[in-house]
Design a protein around this nucleic acid. Structure first.
Lengths: 124, 124
DNA sequence: TATACTGTATTATTTATCTATTACAGTAAT
DNA sequence: ATTACTGTAATAGATAAATAATACAGTATA
């Protein structure tokens, strides 16, 4: 995985795992790769992986069986809520950022539509 | 100004100034507050302000008259391009992030519309 | 009981960010 | 020339993030 500068890697790993869950690539109760495997895959130190997992653990998304591994929670409602919350945060941020550039809510949908239209043209 | 953790302050200052330009609160040729004033306003060290300004300087958005201050470029075309570029980047990021949560481009507009609708309801 | 996996903890080192402080240098007005 | 602004540079210190290396502890299985 390529990491951006200026954002802590452990946060980017956390975001990555949240995305895997939102996409359903990690499902309820599923075992996730061991910290050492993740560290190899992501070419990152074990401690950095550990730090990302600790946060998700304390948020209840993951739970640990010591000696066995880390598992996605079986609380499907929490998973659904988490996914919805991630998307809502993304929308909220988007609206806020666009307003900071002077684009008001009423203009937002048409701005997005135009962007998607032009964007599509360029790739054809 | 309140700063977020996990993002370098000098970058947040840079973003802040870019926003001021995008909003037209800083216009072509205008003098911006001195590094010391900005440092006071933002309750931040002078060096940190300096670092933000250096980047914008090297990007041509600001220019320096030593002993006088920093000024917004008079290149109105560059300013317009920069503003458009900021907005496009924001849109690009948004589309990408939503796709990472499994929301495809075709669903994007309606997702945004629904969010704005529900969002408005809550505040009434 | 070995062996090979798991997670966890500790220590030391490096790098980036930020602050604080001091000093130097250019500009302008009195 | 003095004063008061500007930007700039340099140094030292604090903290957070990340790496590296090592060790310890729980689980499962041959």
């Amino acid at each position: 995985m390529e990491f951006k500068d200026n954002i802590p890697i452990y946060l980017q790993i956390e975001q990555y795992l949240y995305r895997q869950i939102a996409l359903g690539k990690l499902t309820a109760g599923e075992k996730i790769p061991s910290v050492r495997k993740l560290a190899l895959e992501l070419t990152v130190n074990v401690n950095t992986v550990q730090r990302a997992l600790q946060q998700m653990n304390s948020q209840g998304i993951l739970y640990t069986k010591r000696g066995e591994g880390n598992f996605v929670t079986e609380d499907t409602q929490l998973l659904a809520e988490t996914k919805q919350s991630l998307i809502n945060n993304e929308l909220e941020q988007f609206v806020q950022n666009m307003e900071r550039f002077g684009i008001k809510k009423v203009e937002l949908v048409s701005t997005l539509e135009n962007y998607l239209k032009d964007e599509g043209d360029q790739h054809e």
